[in-house]
Amino acid sequence: MNTVENRRRSLSRGIRGSAFLAGLALAVSACGTPSSAPPGQAGGDEGGEGQKVVIGIGGQTLLTYLPTTLADELGYFEEEGLDVDLQDLQGGSKALTAMIGGSTEVTSGYYEHTIQMQAKNQPVKAFVNMNLSSGLALVVSEKNKDTIKSVADLKGKNVGVTAPGSSTDMFVKYLLSQNGMEIDAAAVSAIGAGSSAVAAVEQGQVDAAIMLEPDITVLEKRIGVKPTILEDVRTPEGLQEVFGTDAWPSSSLYATEAWLEKNPETAEKLATAIRRTLEYVAEHSGEQIAAEMPETFAGGDPSQYAAVIEELKLTLSKDGVFTESGAEAVLETQRIANPEVGEAEIDLSQTYTNDFLN
């Protein structure tokens, strides 16, 4: 039996009970993740060379998703025989919803969404890992820097997130819980990513926000001083301090198990392209990488953009592989921050796979 047939056989075991999901209406739960998922949108790998794949990204300008865009810019998807269409959906929960609704086939989003979907008995699986850290930071707006000096001071305040139910939202809830508060002690507002997020914090539309790069660096340039940051997992040290782990898989490619079962060759090509991109990043400077990215992503300051990419390299995966310990760290966060996961029975082995990286 060849490798592809092995994968089909293995994956089919995980989806035999999910066929009844076809045709269910799309619904979005209170935490922002869909409550039901159709079993897949693609027609299989029969399309051959140049097969079209639509990938929804949870905020394309955010550096946590850089490998997805960079793989496209370097031509790696095309070299693998794929015609990839990247769609910027401005938030992880929105990207997940688009995939479940059928407008995209694969999501470039945070791994934690696969855990959330399993808690709803929906088979979604990540198949290549891009980042060993969520890259998040809790930033206080300038107007509140004298009154918000700790996470405890967020009680009753308005915190900006990319979208409700997204990883930024989960991070707020995790921090509140870890500081002895209810997870709804602070309100959250969707501010998206990129210029909308920077403007919301700069203009004081929110009291604080969960932000990622390059938005944090752009904000600093706009306000002329270093912003007040209360919690920061952009570095390995910060990751260890907040989550107590060396690896917290975040940005990844994931799809429904049904799509993976129908499209194992395509999944392998996508995983290979991302792995090649991670190797490229490890071997090149931030300046060289920035030169390959869309010019608009630099926000008018290519040197600053390159410097932030150089720092980002510290937390990117080198090989795209998921580790059991990293997955367990994400699950622990979800049990604390997400009531829908809570004490639900979760089989982590069904939320990710390294099979397509062989």
Rank of each mutant, 00 (worst) to 15 (best):
Q334K: 10
V201Y: 02
T333D: 00
S134K: 01
G192R: 08
R9H: 13
D169V: 13
G50Q: 11
V218C: 02
R13F: 13
E268P: 04
S103R: 14
G92A: 14
A137H: 02
A247T: 05
V151R: 03
Q350E: 13
I336P: 04
R276W: 09
K145E: 15
G23C: 08
S134A: 14
G194Q: 06
K269I: 07
Q90I: 10
P123T: 14
T68P: 04
T114V: 08
I115L: 12
A19D: 07
V233Q: 04
G47E: 08
A98Y: 07
I309N: 03
L96G: 03
D146E: 14
N158R: 12
G224E: 10
R335M: 12
G47P: 01
E311P: 00
V206M: 01
Q122H: 06
M1R: 08
N354F: 05
E261W: 12
P164A: 09
S29K: 13
H284I: 11
N263P: 01
K157Y: 04
G58S: 14
E202Y: 10
P38A: 14
V172F: 06
L316H: 02
A329H: 06
M1T: 10
A186E: 05
A282W: 09
I148K: 03
V281R: 00
G40Y: 09
P339M: 12
L21C: 04
E237G: 01
G109H: 00
M1F: 11
T256I: 07
K262P: 00
V206R: 00
L270T: 03
L348A: 05
Y111H: 08
Y65M: 03
S195I: 11
G43D: 14
Q118F: 08
T3M: 11
A273L: 02
E46W: 15
M117F: 10
S349D: 11
Y110C: 00
Q288W: 09
G342Y: 12
Q51F: 10
Q87A: 11
T61H: 07
K155F: 05
E237W: 07
A190C: 05
A291T: 04
Q203L: 15
